[in-house]
Structures are given as C-alpha cells and as structure tokens.
C-alpha cells in the first residue's frame, strides 16, 4: 500500500548519504597527507572526525525527537529514514577518519562501539522490515489478548471434558492448564519455544493413552485431544507472537545503551586527542 522507510521519499536520504560517502571517499583518495600516512591528525582527518562526531550526536538526537510529540518540523518517518542511511554512511566517514590505524586504545574503543551500535541498528532495520508482516500473518487478524483468551477458554473446556476421564487424565489436563507458560524468560521469549511445554507434553501423552486404550475409552479421549491440539496450535502461535515482539524490541536494549557508551568513549577520545596534541 505504501512504502518502507528505505524507499521513503524516493530514496531521498539514501541520496544524501551517498553524497556524504562519495565526498568522503573522494577527498580521501585525493588527499596527500604529510609523511604519506593517513591519520586523524591531518586536516582531512579532523574534518572527517568533526563530521563523524556531529553525525553521532545528531543520530542520537533521534531518541529525543521521537519523543517530542506534536513538533511541527519533519515527521518521525523522515527522521528514521535519514537516521538509517546517515547511520550507515557513518561507517565510511569514521573508518576514513581513522586512516585505518587501529590499536588497543580508547580511540579504537570508540570506533568499535560505533560499529557495534551500527550493527545492532542493522539488525533492528532487518527486523523492522521483515517481522511486521510475519507477525500479522501469524496473528491471523486476532490480537495477542484474544489468542490468550481463546487459550483460557480451551483450558476450561478441556478441564470440563476431563472430569469424567479419571485422575491421570485430569492430572495431565490440569498441569497443561496451570503450568503452560507463554513468554517467560528472555531466552524463552526470543526462541519462541518451550522444550518442557506441558501443553505439548499433554497432547503427546493423551495421544499415547488413546492408542493404548480400549475403543470405548479412546472414543472419549478423542474430543479432548482435538481441544488440546487446538490449544497447542494457539500456544505455538502466541509464542511466535511473543518472539516476534521480542525481535522487534531486543536490539534496542543493545543499540541504545551502547550508543551512550559510544558517546562517553567519543568524548574521551576527543579530550584525549586535544590533551595530548
């Protein structure tokens, strides 16, 4: 129906970013540094460093702008599209700024943090582009709340049906109803699976019981198995939904704190450079 942030405004911000990259590379190629060694201390090095530092501050300002609601300038979509492209352009600007001189020092730490932040941002970008569609299809028009409600309803139905089927089956059904976890730990959320899921286990156990039971008994079990299978399907769907939501959110827990670390490292880098000048 309409476009993603990459295609936004007919690639306007990509064009800006390409211009920045082209100028940086062009100058780097044309530049003839003293002693023939490219480094951050030449006029080009200082120039690229200043641009890079300003870009970092500007990129981080996105966090503020996003929360400044009702501001009358550009829309957040403009900002995000520019954030993505200029963030990627920063790799070129900063790398050329280093003159490919790396070492075990605070300067390279800042560079490494920056690459890490950009990397997490690329992860986020991919997630933003892919996950919404998967999430929509997985939900099939329902909300997570509705899916959870349906699960609760199926639980109640299962327990009703198990009433007449003996203690063992009641135990299985009760365990599936009370101990099935959707969400759970960070790892569980991200994996979208639960190896010890009582619902999946119950389904398997009920099927085994039906196979070994007499014809009359398995007849009774069949209805319960159908319900439990439906519940398992919904549980899996709910877990996938949680997983997708986690994928959309998880990278921000890296992207944002590390960018603050980057800001600190950057400040240190700048102070150090000028102090030892």
């Amino acid at each position: 129906m309409h476009q993603s942030i990459l295609v936004f405004r007919n690639y306007l911000y990509l064009k800006w970013a390409l211009l920045v990259v082209a100028v940086a590379i062009g100058l780097y190629v044309l530049h003839d540094p003293a002693y023939g060694v490219a480094n951050g201390g030449t006029w080009l090095g200082y120039g690229l460093g200043t641009i890079g530092a300003l870009l970092i501050v500007w990129l981080m300002w996105f966090g503020i702008r996003k929360r400044r609601y009702g501001a009358a300038s550009l829309s957040v979509e403009d900002w995000l599209s520019a954030h993505v492209y200029l963030g990627l352009a920063l790799i070129f600007v900063a790398t050329l700024h280093t003159g490919f001189q790396f070492g075990w020092n605070v300067h390279t730490l800042a560079y490494a943090l920056m690459i890490f932040v950009i990397g997490s941002g690329v992860f986020g970008l991919v997630a933003y582009l892919r996950v919404p569609d998967l999430m929509t299809r997985n939900r099939g028009g329902a909300t997570l709340d509705q899916i959870l409600q349906d699960i609760a309803e199926l639980d109640a139905q299962c327990r009703d049906m198990a009433m007449s089927l003996g203690d063992k089956i009641n135990q299985i059904v009760l365990h599936a109803a009370e101990d099935t976890v959707i969400g759970g730990s960070f790892r569980q959320q991200l994996s979208g699976r639960d190896a010890d899921c009582p619902t999946i286990a119950a389904n398997r156990q009920l099927q085994d019981l039906a196979a070994s039971a007499s014809t009359a008994q398995s007849e009774n079990l069949r209805g319960l198995i159908a319900l439990m299978a439906r519940k398992e399907e919904l549980v899996r769907r709910a877990r996938r939904d949680v997983r997708y939501k986690a994928l959309l959110d998880v990278w921000l827990y890296i992207h944002v704190p590390i960018s603050f670390a980057l800001l600190a490292a950057l400040a240190t880098h700048i102070v150090a450079v000028f102090f030892y000048w």
Binding site: H2, A72, S73, V76, W79, P132
Partner: peptide, 20 residues
C-alpha cells in the same frame, strides 16, 4: 490534532509510515 501545526500526531509520530 486540529490545533497542532503539521497535522495528526499519530501519523507524524509513526517511525515507519505505517499509520495513515
């Protein structure tokens, strides 16, 4: 958002342009 310059805040705040 009739009193806010630039139009509906929900649309303007959508980072991916999903809201319209």
């Amino acid at each position: 958002c009739k009193d806010i310059e630039g139009g509906a805040s929900c649309v303007r705040a959508c980072p991916t342009g999903a809201a319209l």
